[in-house]
Design a protein around this nucleic acid. Structure first.
Lengths: 262, 262
DNA sequence: CGGTGAGTTCCATATAATGAAACTCGTTTT
DNA sequence: AAAACGAGTTTCATTATATGGAACTCACCG
């Protein structure tokens, strides 16, 4: 059969439902989910019941709506502690934030997207989960490009293929070929820049984090320094390169014996 | 049959595995999981494969270990935004933190435990997920007692029954009867105190958050002000009660049309 | 060189998921 | 007020899926 078979049985279906609820970003009614789901009414219904009584979804009996459940928050806390670079990288990015006075992002790749796992915000107060767990596009962020550039060729191709290539600004890369060429340049150069490709006025310099902190190591994430054109020029940002690279190297070295997330 | 039947089919089993991995807090080998699981080898194996290729677990091919996957972090970000009180409560707890200069916790009840969904730390820098997603015992924290005190009688009994009653300090409540009496007092009084019941030297005052911000509303969470005996006495802490209650009331009012997590 | 144990695959069987259809209940239409 | 409707829920025979005992592979150990 020519079927890709991506379903993974019941668990896969349950996850699709969670994603569907997550993607709405607001309480969802049964009928909305039904309309978008290939599953028949009864099946969807029972799956929702299961998810609800497992605490992965929460059901509001008055409004007849589902939202993601708090049990996910608990699990994620553990996941973040044990599978993300954040705990290891914390002292390093704290130092970088203090030294540069700019916003620092720490991210890993998850399913073709950039998943931010930690952040230091120069001035502003904290924002907790509002920051970690956020995802961004890989093709138009510095950190996304930095990570993709250092993936194995096969994985890189796969990642490129998953990008949406939506134009966000005049500088956004909107096709696979241009992106591939840009990644080539980044791999040669060692760092990636976001030249207002995602948001006008926002620029960044990003470095991949290589396992072991040495060239040749597997890429396990990325760090970036973000600023606005109002605060610094691209050249001034480029001047922070040594600090950024030293931070990335140090994180990579500390994480040498880390496992890689798919 | 006298069977409680808590399993929920395949999805339930998959969740149990996730919990098992989570509870270890470190990379786990297949055989460790097998030893603790009632599932036969083959079943556990295939379930792990499913979870891994769904991104809920990450597998390290070199070390043959599993850890929680980053996909959970993504989902949790959404869950936190749409199902927790945190986004709604943020301005209120920011204000309370600024006014009191003490550490503020915002929590909700999840399966008998206190789940912290946000935190403001007086002095120290941020710690992101390291804070939100954390769980604590319900029977020996101010916020846990405050929430439990205002649950419906049936839910309160159920919550009491789920407590571990481990002695953490000389002041810890270690039996259901004492806890029930304490909750009675808290319900009459309106606020709960943690008198070094969980950690020596740490005290707190906590208020339930009632839906609508008015007495009679369903309890949807709690806020607390925590300090150490070195900084303030219980009496001084009690003096912050008006600020605390006003904050809880305001959050409850803003959340009036919120759904309740099971 | 044979043994041991972790991890993986096989396959007949049992179990759990499925989905068409019927039902309930609250709301809208006539 | 009755009828029609639509969202949500339940039923049950059927089917697809998960199951788990056992056999296999492979690396390491004695």
């Amino acid at each position: 059969m020519a079927k890709p078979e991506r379903s993974d049985g019941t668990v896969g279906k349950a996850l699709e439902i969670l994603d569907a609820v997550a993607s709405k970003g607001r309480p969802v009614r049964f009928s909305e989910l039904l309309a978008e789901s290939p599953l028949p009414k009864a099946t969807l219904y029972r799956l929702l019941q299961t998810l609800t009584n497992q605490g992965l979804l929460a059901y509001d009996a008055e409004l007849h709506t589902y939202t993601l459940g708090l049990r996910l928050v608990r699990l994620a806390h553990q996941a973040w502690k044990q599978s993300s670079l954040a705990p290891i990288a914390r002292p390093h990015i704290d130092r970088l934030a203090a030294r540069t006075g700019e916003t620092i992002h720490l991210a890993q790749m998850d399913q073709g997207q950039v998943l931010y796992v930690d952040k230091r915000n120069a001035a502003q107060p904290i924002e907790m989960f509002a920051q970690a767990g956020k995802v961004g596009p890989g093709y138009c962020t510095g950190i996304g490009k930095a990570i993709m550039a250092f993936l194995e060729p096969a994985a890189r191709e796969a990642a490129i293929a998953r990008q949406a290539f939506l134009r966000h600004t005049p500088n956004t890369i909107t096709d696979p070929q241009t992106l591939a060429a840009e990644l080539e340049r980044i791999r040669a150069e060692g760092v990636a820049f976001d030249r207002e490709e995602h948001e006008p006025g926002i620029i960044c310099i990003a470095s991949p984090i290589l396992s072991g902190g040495a060239p040749g190591g597997r890429v396990i994430g990325g760090v970036s320094i973000t600023t606005s054109t109002a605060r610094r020029s691209l050249e001034e940002l480029a001047a922070l390169r040594p600090d950024l690279e030293e931070t990335a190297r140090a994180i990579g070295a500390d994480a040498a014996h880390w496992q890689f997330p798919a």
